[in-house]
């Protein structure tokens, strides 16, 4: 049952991810990316991590991608024609993309990945994983957590400064 659900969502994720890079219209690409995020969330649910799943949908699909769409719609760029200003980047793209694929193949081939004992739902955490995540964030990962909040503060101040200058 779980494996069937996994393959259905995996197929959609791969198809949608291809759509992100192959579709000509930027709005369609953004929509395909939204589909990727939602289906990834479904996979987190299969991995018994509903909190991560909800956060994935809320933050990536619900906030970040909506802002992408917002900008795309305001700028209303022409659909990509295939030829244009970005042409010289093709050689670089092929080079670095090829290097990345090679690296991934090497890593996966050389790493000893233990076979999963049983695919499917892991035993449910009784208090819910939210409790466990909160506990970890405020003990072991307190410093990275606080540094992240500082980063966000810097970004916010930066935005306000930029917006004030114009007015």
């Amino acid at each position: 049952m779980e494996i069937v659900v996994f393959y259905i969502f995996a197929a959609i994720v791969v198809a949608a991810a291809l759509g992100v890079i192959l579709l000509r219209n930027p709005v369609h690409s953004a929509l395909a990316l939204a589909l990727v995020f939602v289906c990834l969330a479904a996979m987190y649910v299969l991995l018994n991590a509903p909190f991560i799943a909800a956060a994935q949908v809320m933050i990536y699909a619900g906030a970040i991608l909506i802002l992408f769409l917002f900008v795309i719609m305001l700028l209303a760029p022409e659909p990509e024609s295939g030829a244009g200003a970005l042409r010289f980047q093709r050689a670089f793209a092929a080079l670095f993309g090829g290097a990345l694929i090679l690296e991934l193949v090497l890593v996966v081939a050389s790493a000893a990945i233990p076979a999963p004992a049983k695919f499917g739902f892991l035993p449910a955490a009784p208090a819910g994983d939210v409790y466990a995540i909160g506990k970890l964030l405020f003990t072991d990962f307190l410093l990275p957590f606080e540094i992240t909040s500082l980063l966000l503060l810097v970004a916010m101040v930066g935005v306000i400064v930029l917006a004030k200058k114009k007015a």
């Binding site: 939602v38 969330a41 509903p50 909190f51 909800a54 956060a55 949908v57 809320m58 699909a61 619900g62 906030a63 909506i66 819910g128 939210v130």
Partner: peptide, 15 residues
């Protein structure tokens, strides 16, 4: 067990 987050996530998809 994450019903409240689920509702917020679904709400943000409604946009």
């Amino acid at each position: 067990n994450i019903a409240v987050l689920y509702l917020l996530a679904i709400g943000s998809l409604g946009i």
